[in-house]
């Protein structure tokens, strides 16, 4: 196999077929960029989960004076109940750590949290805030297991999972990611068909050469390789453009726009972008290679 021969054949093929080649590159680039954005969205979700799940806790509110809860009987939790609960929760294998927040501490935290709204603070007294056990779970998704274990315990009024507040947000992100993948899938289908067609036209426009190659006994590999590499080259260039697009997305949309606006959460980093980019190349080369291969099997019979 002589590299110079194959390279010059590829060059001839791509130039003859320039408009189709450009169309192929653009379609591949767009489809891979959307696919890559889908992957980044997935990583965004996990970045946010890491960030938030580390901070969320489960609150076990204890009965106060006049509580309506079924375990309270209208009276406040007794010190014995509280001690027993603390021990039992602390011993539960799901629990990483637990601490007790008294009404006074809850009031301090409340004042800190709403320090900008004086009228709110003035309307709340320590008595209005329930005492609670603050639980940090080893696995934040295991909330249900913990809740079912303690919801009926005496002295427990209510159990609240802070994670539940985040879930709708994650659902939206997951759906966005799904949409990105459906769009990417359709685009990739278009790209595969377009590459196939590009190769078919290339094979047709060089049928004189390939006919002679067959006659003089060139091997399949020698005849088909330039076409195959043409397709793969389109895939590589498309993937490179898609990678540049993703980097631009990260630099402009995430770093310049979202990051300064939404300081309370984590975003995908450059590490995530660089982890996604190799997959764009794998997919780009794989799809164009497969598409070219099957087109050649049909249209360049030896």
């Amino acid at each position: 196999m002589r590299a110079s021969f194959v390279l010059s054949e590829i060059g001839i093929g791509l130039r003859r077929n320039l408009t189709m080649t450009i169309a192929g590159v653009i379609t591949v680039a767009i489809s891979l960029a959307i696919f890559g954005a889908g992957l980044l969205a997935q990583r965004q979700v996990s970045a946010m989960k890491d960030f938030w799940y580390d901070k969320v806790e489960v609150s076990i509110y204890l009965c106060g004076e006049g509580s309506k809860g079924p375990n309270c009987n209208g009276s406040a939790v007794t010190p014995e109940q509280r001690t027993q609960l603390l021990e039992e929760v602390g011993a539960n294998p799901l629990v990483e750590k637990v601490f007790y927040e008294s009404q006074a501490q809850a009031y301090e935290n409340f004042k800190k949290q709403f320090k900008d709204s004086d009228d709110l603070i003035q309307n709340v007294t320590p008595d209005a805030l329930p005492e609670s056990l603050r639980v940090k779970l080893k696995d934040p998704t295991k909330y249900e297991d913990l809740a079912s274990a303690f919801i009926d315990s005496p002295g427990v009024e209510e159990i609240q999972d802070q994670k539940a507040l985040l879930d709708p947000f994650f659902r939206v992100l997951n759906r966005l990611q799904l949409v990105a993948w459906v769009v990417a899938g359709i685009q990739i289908l278009a790209a595969v068909l377009l590459i196939g067609n590009t190769i078919r036209v290339a094979a047709f426009s060089r049928r004189r050469e390939t006919g002679i190659m067959r006659l003089v006994g060139a091997s399949n590999l020698y005849i088909q390789l330039p076409f195959l590499l043409e397709g793969v080259l389109v895939g590589i260039v498309g993937a490179a453009l898609a990678a540049a697009g993703l980097a631009a997305l990260k630099a402009v949309l995430v770093d310049r726009l979202l990051q300064p606006m939404l300081k309370f959460t984590a975003f995908v980093g450059w590490g995530d972008v660089f982890a996604v980019i190799p997959w764009l190349f794998v997919l780009g080369v794989g799809l164009t290679g497969i598409s070219s291969f099957f087109t050649l099997r049909r249209h360049l019979r030896v």
Binding site: F5, R208, E209, G211, I212, L215, V216, G217, S219
Partner: peptide, 30 residues
């Protein structure tokens, strides 16, 4: 096919290659 040479009525030369390149083509591709 390498053990068989072929000549046709319509010559089947590559118009964008020189005489030398046309003949060399048969060797390059094998």
């Amino acid at each position: 096919r390498r053990s068989i040479g072929c000549v046709f009525q319509d010559f089947r030369l590559l118009p964008n290659k020189t005489v030398f390149q046309n003949v060399a083509f048969a060797l390059e591709v094998i």
